[in-house]
Design a protein around this nucleic acid. Structure first.
Lengths: 244, 244
DNA sequence: ATAGAACGTGTAGCTTATACACAATTTATA
DNA sequence: TATAAATTGTGTATAAGCTACACGTTCTAT
């Protein structure tokens, strides 16, 4: 029976050297929204095995660094952004998932406003890819991307997190187009607008879109005050009859 | 910039010895349902720091073992059960979460039919604890338990997974009582029954409860055929208008 | 024979989701 | 400066699902 965890670190180290053969990493699926498309930030892999393939942004976890901190660090290093929405999704740990050795990776997704992030993309070999045009990635990163996208899809219907992908002021069309691109569906305009007004998630800022070649729409901002910490809490009006 | 993952394992090993200082473990929250209560299987911690406290069942991941396999192995070793429902929930990786050293753990929950599992509980210092009576556990296991319970709560409304906690034949009262104990709420009997009949998840086996001190209820079994792989897929009748 | 306990059933009101069309505003262009 | 093109803004009727709620029936225990 494996009771390794029930021993002291000294016993562990001496009896079970073998256990310290695994490295831990984090990989971030960084979503952005631009030109009416959901995009993800990728980097060219410089590992021989995956020459010319793109991969997610990741790094090994340092021994003195919390797992969460590692993913925030990767984001900060790559995007320069500090205050981002970040959520853990899943840990991938197949023995052969990394050709260079045993690496167990924890995947996260992040939502950023692409406009906030003005990096020298080329210099770092970073690139924003439309999510629905990605067919292969290095390592098991396509599977990781798919898993994170699925999680994002299920979260946005319950929690007001999409606003992290938008500029402070946005039109209802931009918002709808964002939902449509995440869900890969079309939504009815009137019903979409009605729903959002009923939910009371939006505040009319009394401004209009600029530079659109048609009648400009009104601009709104996210009604953060409705949510306890002003950021990404949920809005569940119904509590009773839990079984659906 | 940390690009450790972009190198070969040889480079990693030589340049970054420090990275191989982290151990990986799995911890399983094993749920069972007995005497109208949701219970979880715990073991007495024999680590000095947590003397007389209970902890989840876990073990270190072996270098040549997939992460998934490690959690199945823990379950098999502890319960003797092979074919169980097991879902990954979250990975906990704070630097100081384990007093014996740096251990990053991936938490899973499992649903088993307590009757299938006839172990010498005492001999292994294993014990079934009512979930809602647990206030503290060793390590960060209380937090892990809470996280897994929350995940279980949100899953059961969308996926027919609770049947993994029940014997093959069960009454509607047992089923309702199970939902109630997971959600820690009371449900209306008539509405509950109507919902399940409409969902068509149940098959009447034309038998009655035995040995109950009142009018016996009819017994049902889970309509596994409704779900593609016969086990734990979802049942989503609505596809349109994704934003709620 | 009676009390106690849980079973089995249906309806009305409310809320939420869906389907759907037309006039108004702005820009671009002839 | 008139017109076409594009997109905005708005409401209603129907269907589906959720909630609240009561009483006669069946079995056990005494």
């Amino acid at each position: 029976m494996g009771t390794a965890l029930q021993k002291t670190i000294q016993e562990l180290r001496s009896e079970n050297r073998e256990y310290f053969q695994i490295a831990c990493s984090v990989d971030c699926v960084i979503f952005g929204f631009d030109e009416n498309e959901l995009k993800v930030l990728l980097i060219k892999s410089d590992l021989e095995e995956f020459q010319d393939q793109w991969s997610l942004l990741g790094d090994l976890v340092k021994p003195d660094e919390n797992l969460d901190s590692a993913s925030y660090r990767v984001l900060k290093e790559r995007t320069g952004l500090d205050d981002v929405y970040l959520e853990q999704v899943h840990t991938f740990g197949d023995v052969n998932r990394h050709p260079a050795g045993r690496v167990i990776t924890t995947a996260w997704y992040s939502l950023i406003n692409i406009k906030d992030h003005q990096l020298d993309l080329e210099h770092n070999e970073l690139h924003w890819h439309p999510v629905n045009e990605i067919t292969t990635l290095a390592f098991d990163h396509k599977k990781i991307l798919d898993t994170c996208l699925k999680q994002l899809q299920s979260r946005i219907d319950e929690h007001p997190i999409v606003f992290n992908l938008l500029p402070e002021k946005f039109s209802l069309r931009e918002l709808q187009s964002l939902y449509e691109s995440i869900h890969a569906t079309k939504l009815d305009r009137r019903n979409f607008r009605k729903k959002f007004f009923l939910m009371d998630w939006l505040i009319d800022v009394n401004e209009l879109e600029q530079d659109v070649p048609h009648r400009p729409g009104k601009l709104y901002r996210f009604n953060a005050a409705k949510f306890s910490d002003g950021k990404v809490k949920e809005n569940k009006p119904k509590v009773e009859e839990a079984v659906h």
